[in-house]
Nucleic acid binder design. Structure first.
Length: 650
DNA sequence: GTTAGGG
DNA sequence: CCCTAAC
């Protein structure tokens, strides 16, 4: 067998050494490290103790170690022979199980495992990225869009199931009815709109809309001729996987860009320095600041530890959106949109008369910018969902502000009254739009990060776009493009604004946004690059922010367990690559931590366990694997020690 | 950049 | 999850 190098995974599939590599941990636990020079006796003791411990564990909790060892041996053997292709029956069963259990997620790690070789090979080549992404229930999406628009006139409260629900995206389908005295200024309106519950819970005034079907703006539809695939992601419906928590738990406000650059691929040194310093500072500083959310208040007093709110943290780690980038949702609005999701709102005023001086606006949905997602063809739907979830979450969390567009024109003056802004009784409010713009955008220099972050692999069209986007002044963003094409129907117009260079891509983006009110991952024109720039991305890098907590789903746990069974503890990077290669938000440290908790969980009584219950069978496997690999490590260590002793004595 | 471990 | 020491 060829000596395996870590990086080999990338190009040749996964190769696992027949014998567990001496976990570099042999350099091991600190305690071990410290002792290693001073002890032979200690070593011996440790070995004995370890053995005893292992025996004990096995006798009390899990299958006999022998059985486990056999299993592992077998597995390792097979793995050794055919890393990725040889998937023992047991694994298959597990996979099925997992898939059946909870939508999607599960499949990913394992599949990644199984297809690793293929995966990696494709990566090297042309990276077929998004072709598989598609889906594109265009109609659905559009339906929702249109229904939203058109239902304006409909009386709210109709019992029917909202059409939007079908394409429900990110709380987008909620209709929000905003009533505001016409004399209120636009600032007030902004506030109102901003208060829209982004968490998907129906706002107080939400009403359902049963009208769907007939698109109000047919041109939108026609425009959507792009060959690109649009994938609609249903936020709420699919949140049964592990990502749920993240999104749900921290619905909005405080920015957390985690999603779009989850990997620790950033400049870690800088990150570390900034992160820890800034973070600490932030902790002290922001005690009172963020606790509106949830019940986590008064954290300041404590040290904001476990429950501490997301603290400003170095964002560097998220600087390289390896696989995900946002993309401007429309050419003209590139920057504008960049700032965030734009959501279509429906202006309405039929009832104004009866409401005296109140303007009734029903916000039925909003869209977020197109998202470009790069994901291997053989990635699972679950991983795709997660990816999209990440992106969406980041958009929402990165801090949003609202912009108001009337007849396609952005209303800049917050001090105007609605009446002055012509958002009032008697005016045509059908074309009023609200855009969500990233707060972040205001604070940072947009252009700085983009170039580095972009994955340009030959995405010629993308690059320019990104650049443009980055460099574009934010102000233009606001003033420029207005939400969706519904308002500004002409693609040409869009292109004219940015020049022909970007036309191709822009058109794409344009279409995408036009076609959907939902989250729309769009396949890049060039199969390889999906560079995407978070619209908000260039925005303030939320420094020192804590990552969102994302409990491991059962499928993930299974994948982890299996990977550890194969690779052993102490090889977290490999575990990550084997089972979570497509899951950016799970770092190997996370996996290690999870394993730690799993072991702990498995060792306590079921009554003491919290969170999503993990099947006992799985926990048994955890213990077995832990015991087995612990033993292995012990043996390695003792073997090493004896070897040294021998060599020294000889 | 990884791994181990404490918090 | 975070942070950091030790490699």
């Amino acid at each position: 067998m060829v000596v395996r190098k870590r990086l080999d995974y990338g190009s040749r599939g996964h190769q696992v050494p027949a014998m567990p590599r001496v976990p570099s941990s042999a350099r091991g636990k600190r305690s071990a490290r410290r002792k290693k020079d001073e002890m032979s006796p200690f070593d011996l003791l440790a070995t004995v103790a370890g053995t005893l411990l292992v025996d004990h564990e096995n006798s009390s909790n899990a299958p006999s170690i022998n059985a486990a060892a056999l299993t592992y041996a077998r597995k390792r053997k097979s793995v050794k022979a055919e890393q990725c292709d040889d998937v023992p029956p047991l694994k298959s069963m597990a996979v099925e199980n997992c898939i059946a259990g909870s939508g999607g997620v599960c499949a990913s790690p394992r599949q990644a495992n199984i297809c690793l070789a293929e995966n990696s090979s494709t990566r090297n080549g042309t990276d077929p990225v998004l072709e598989s992404l598609t889906v594109k229930p265009d109609m659905l999406v559009r339906d929702s869009v249109f229904s939203c628009t058109k239902s304006c006139n409909r009386a709210h409260g109709v019992g029917g199931i909202p059409e939007c629900g079908s394409s429900r995206s990110l709380e987008a389908t909620n209709q929000v009815q905003v009533q505001q005295p016409m004399d209120g200024d636009t600032t007030a309106l902004y506030s109102l709109v901003s208060s829209v519950d982004l968490d998907g819970r129906p706002p107080a005034l939400v009403s359902s809309d049963s009208s769907s079907g007939v698109p109000l703006c047919i041109h939108d539809k026609d425009r959507t001729t792009s060959p690109l695939c649009h994938a609609e992601v249903r936020h709420a419906a699919d949140r049964d996987d592990d990502e749920n928590s993240s999104g749900c738990t921290h619905p909005c406000t405080t920015g957390n860009n985690k999603s779009y650059m989850p990997q620790y691929t950033g400049d870690s040194r800088i990150r570390k320095m900034f992160a820890s310093k800034i973070r600490k500072a932030a902790r002290n500083k922001m005690c009172g600041e963020m606790s509106n959310k949830g019940s986590k208040l008064n954290l300041c007093g404590k040290k904001i530890s476990t429950t501490r709110q997301r603290v400003q943290r170095a964002m560097f780690k998220r600087q390289k959106p390896v696989r995900r980038h946002f993309t401007p949702s429309s050419a003209k609005g590139i920057l504008t949109e960049a700032s965030g999701a734009s959501f279509s709102v429906e202006g309405q005023n039929p009832l104004c008369g009866s409401e005296d001086y109140n303007v009734k606006l029903r916000i039925k949905s909003f869209t977020i910018p197109e998202l470009f997602i790069e994901i291997p063809e053989n990635a699972t739907v679950g991983s795709l969902k997660r990816t999209v979830m990440d992106v969406v979450t980041s958009i929402i969390e990165s801090g949003l502000r609202v912009g108001v567009l009337l007849q396609g024109k952005s209303i800049q003056d917050d001090n105007k009254t609605l009446r002055q802004a012509r958002i009032c009784h008697g005016e045509n409010l059908e074309n009023i739009d609200f855009t969500l713009e990233c707060e972040a955008g205001q604070n940072s220099s947009p252009g700085v990060r983009i170039p580095e972050e972009m994955d340009f692999h030959g995405a010629d069209a993308m690059k320019p776009l990104a650049m443009v986007k980055c460099e574009e002044p934010l102000s233009e963003t606001k003033a420029g493009y207005n939400s969706q094409q519904r308002v500004q129907a002409s693609p040409n117009r869009v292109q004219s604004e940015h020049g022909s260079v970007h036309s191709r891509f822009e058109a794409t983006a344009h279409e995408a946004s036009a076609s959907s009110q939902a989250i729309v991952p769009v396949a890049s024109p060039s199969s390889e690059a999906l560079a995407i720039v978070p619209v908000c991305k260039s925005k303030r890098p939320v420094i020192g922010q804590r990552r969102i907590r994302r409990p491991f789903s059962l499928p993930e746990v299974e994948a982890l367990v299996e990977a550890v069974e194969q690779l052993g503890t102490g090889r977290w990077r490999d575990v990550k690559m084997l089972a979570f290669d497509n899951t950016d938000h799970r770092t190997y440290v996370d996996l290690k931590d999870k394993w730690k908790t799993l072991v702990h969980t498995a060792s306590i009584s079921p009554q003491q366990r919290r969170g999503e219950p993990v099947p006992q069978g799985l926990l048994d496997r955890v213990l077995a694997a832990q015991a087995y690999w612990s033993q292995q490590q012990q043996q390695q260590i003792s073997g090493k020690a004896s070897g040294q002793a021998c060599s020294s004595s000889c």
